[in-house]
Design a protein around this nucleic acid. Structure first.
Lengths: 231, 231
DNA sequence: GGTTGACCTAAAGTGCGATTCCGGTCAACA
DNA sequence: TGTTGACCGGAATCGCACTTTAGGTCAACC
């Protein structure tokens, strides 16, 4: 009944992602996805009530995987939570996921933006919580006004830069990440060495928060309630 | 002959700018502009060979005025050339000029982009020259790799931020400029006090470069050669 | 009872003639 | 001699009938 093959769900999402990148949300037909997987169109609807939910699931899986990557790095080395390592790492990981990049770069082509909205709110809360913890433990400068804005504005250009002009796309992504690291460290971190205990504490706190986030994502992916009527 | 009333040219540009902001390039008819000024459509064509040149002139005048503003500040205080003062000042001045902001924010609506292109090249050269002078005189850190990219990427988000989300538009522009100043100073300037002689030197060099730029702009605005046939 | 694809239908796309719009010109005017 | 607006023609827009596409359903099938 409501336990359709979970591995099949993943294959559907794989195909959906591939097609989404190639042709954009509007031009991808549910039937295309089904045929790419080798199943009937009706079967897709056994997994998700409609097309939009399918693509929401896709983005959720993508976000979950990305977050897991970062989580793994934090576990391997708690110092990864320091802004000048965390932010460039996110930059790199994000740039290596075309679907996430496409999502960030605006709904230009894939305005299943509802998925976005819900996620965005969670991420904002998490970011705020993270910043507060870092401030509390002296891992981030306390003399920067409008900290959230400051980090946002200073970082945004790195994500959008190559969208607006191609004058810098000769620079390797890793070099760009280094530039970002330098900027974040000098502008937003205190000059001394970070306190290892503080690092460990914040790493633990952030780690569990991220795990919660991931499990939230994962729950949304394969959830399916065939009884609930569509809006 | 080729000396149509220059003050009238300015009134035409005023009207063009106003209409451009209100309705966008495509929906502004030359006749609208003429009627707004209270003259015949033909008269507009005594000033510029075609619509595109008219709007190029408008953007040139805007750029010239903006550059003049900055130039005035440098003359009043040479220390204005320091990145952490220059860049936020440009940020503020730019944000107070809706036409320039619209121009920056992409040709979405006013793709008389040819004007852009020519100007952009000049500005790039000037920026490079400026950076080299600052480096040479120790007014900017020498340990930042890919300096041009670094400055560009770190700054871009401040210009584009409020385009993508409205979560920060409660913050006054001046506060945002301060954030920008902090980021630039800590990330891109050496820690010590700047050498006043170096400041004066660079201010002089930059000052004359900007004056040249402005005079280049101004030349383009009212230039008109009725004998040259359109492409 | 999980799976399917023909089927239904609304919406998007297409073709095309009629109509409007508007950049650019120039003969006439002051 | 500077100024004008009626005028021209190419391009964009509109109206509309027609065709195609694709999301979602469900009776039939295995």
């Amino acid at each position: 009944m409501s336990h359709p093959n979970r591995e099949r769900a993943d294959r559907i999402l794989d195909a959906a992602g591939e097609l989404l990148l190639r042709m954009g949300y509007r031009k991808v037909a549910v039937d295309d996805i089904a045929r790419a997987v080798g199943i009937g169109k009706g079967t897709v609807y056994l997994h998700w009530r409609n097309k939009e939910l399918l693509f929401q699931a896709l983005m959720m899986r993508e976000s979950a995987d990305l977050t897991d990557e970062i989580l793994g790095r934090i576990k391997a080395d708690p110092a990864m939570i320091l802004p000048h390592r965390m932010i460039p790492a996110s930059f790199l990981v994000t740039h290596r996921r075309p679907l996430v990049m496409a999502m960030l770069r605006g709904n230009a082509d894939m305005f299943g933006s509802l998925g976005d909205l819900a996620l965005r709110k969670q991420q904002d809360e998490l970011r705020t919580q993270f910043e507060e913890a870092m401030l509390r433990r002296g891992l981030i400068r306390s003399d920067v006004p409008n900290l959230t804005y400051a980090l946002n504005a200073s970082t945004l250009g790195f994500y959008l830069g190559d969208t607006l002009s191609d004058e810098f796309d000769g620079i390797p992504l890793e070099d760009k990440a280094e530039v970002l690291a330098h900027m974040i460290r000098t502008a937003f971190e205190p000059s001394g060495e970070p306190d290892p205990a503080a690092v460990a504490d914040v790493a633990a706190e952030l780690g569990s928060a991220l795990e919660e986030l991931v499990s939230g994502y994962r729950q949304g992916i394969y959830a399916h309630d065939p009884t609930k009527a569509p809006g």
